[in-house]
Amino acid sequence: MRPTGFIPPLCTPLTPDGAVDTGSLRRLVEHVLEGGASGVFVLGTSGEAVFLTDEQRRTVVRTAVEAAGGRVPVLAGVIDTTTPRVLERAREAAGLGADALVATAPFYTDTHPAETADHFRRVAAETALPLLAYDIPSRVHTKLPLAVLLDLAEDRTLIGLKDSSGDLDTLRHLLVALRHRDPNRHFSVLTGSELTVDAALLIGADGVVAGLGNVDPAGYARLYAHAQAGRWPEAVAEQNRLTTLHALVRPAGTRDMSGTAATLGALKTALCLLGVIDHPTTAAPLRPLTPEAAQAVEHLLKDGGLL
């Protein structure tokens, strides 16, 4: 398995009382597949994984696997604080039919790079599933070292990386090093920096994992297709359009709510307005969008031609 293309990190639709809305999740899977997604990633940051109970996480994986029906791979986040907890999540996701796992470095506690490498090796050995690393320093508070990634790519502990660090310089160093150490490109690099996808693809990234792709999957699929065909002016134009649309994830100020609540609330509000999910509910303790912020999302969808 070598993930490429556009793989959206799915939101987790919730009912007003906070339960996983499996009907809406199934429709969301269909929505992104119709838009051209080459896989789906559940239980990532956009999926509110760290807010969900263990049973809710199991429900999300089970529902997504059933909804995808083998048409595309299902990547399951196994994000948790420590190695033993991640191993539990990995066993559960494997048992529920996930095609690959996505894990961060341990967090809350600090770890040495050698311990981080050992963490990934333990997770990879726990199941027969392919494993991708998730580099997101804004949440984990540590950057995955380049040397560690290259070693884990070389010994096939990892099949790929989702890079949400926003560090284009280091991403380029990784891609250049991989060309020398892995010329057959067994290791897949996916960018999670959704405003610089065109640049990442130009320098050699293999795909994109973009939260805004929940709302406009066809846009990111087009961007990837333009890049693959070498139509760079068209790729830049599509990226610019998506950048304008991206304003919808900041419709509310963060004076009375977190940036996480503003972003996830906006994505879910947009999906409700598009008729994909039933409720914009976010997990506790995230605050809901104000009516004014929801109206701003609606205006941006209309301006973007999605409504």
Rank of each mutant, 00 (worst) to 15 (best):
Y224N: 03
Q228N: 09
R241C: 05
E234S: 13
Y220C: 04
Q239Y: 09
T244F: 11
Y220D: 04
R222I: 03
V215L: 04
N214R: 07
T243V: 09
L223W: 05
A218Q: 02
A227E: 06
Q239R: 06
A225T: 12
L242K: 04
R241N: 11
R241Q: 12
E238P: 08
A227P: 13
G230S: 14
R222W: 01
P217E: 03
A225H: 10
A229P: 07
G219W: 03
L245A: 13
L223T: 03
D216I: 02
G219D: 05
L245T: 07
L245Q: 09
T244L: 15
A237D: 15
R231C: 08
T243F: 11
D216A: 15
G230N: 14
R222K: 08
Q239C: 12
A229G: 15
H226E: 05
L223N: 00
R231E: 15
A235N: 10
Y220M: 00
T243G: 15
L245R: 10
A221E: 01
V236Q: 14
L242W: 02
Q239H: 06
V215A: 04
E234M: 06
T244I: 11
G213E: 04
D216L: 01
A221H: 00
P217T: 06
R231Q: 15
V236K: 11
Y224D: 06
H246A: 10
G213S: 08
L242I: 11
A221V: 02
Y224F: 13
R241V: 01
W232T: 10
T243C: 06
L245C: 12
T244Y: 07
P233L: 09
L223Q: 05
Q239W: 05
R222C: 00
A225Q: 12
A218G: 04
G230M: 11
D216T: 01
A227H: 04
T243E: 11
G230D: 09
P233S: 14
L245D: 10
Y220W: 05
A227T: 10
A225S: 13
T243M: 08
G219E: 05
T244C: 07
H226D: 07
E234G: 06
P217K: 00
A229D: 13
T243I: 01
T244A: 15
A229K: 15
G213F: 00
R222H: 06
V215Q: 04
V215S: 02
N240F: 02
A221D: 03
N240I: 08
L245W: 11
Q228S: 12
R222N: 00
N240D: 12
A218T: 09
A235Y: 12
H226L: 02
V215D: 07
G213H: 00
Q239I: 12
G219P: 00
A218C: 00
E234C: 03
E238I: 07
G230T: 08
N214I: 06
G219A: 05
R222P: 00
Y224H: 10
A221Q: 01
L223K: 07
N214H: 03
Y224G: 02
G230H: 10
E234H: 07
P233C: 09
Y220S: 02
T244K: 13
G219Y: 02
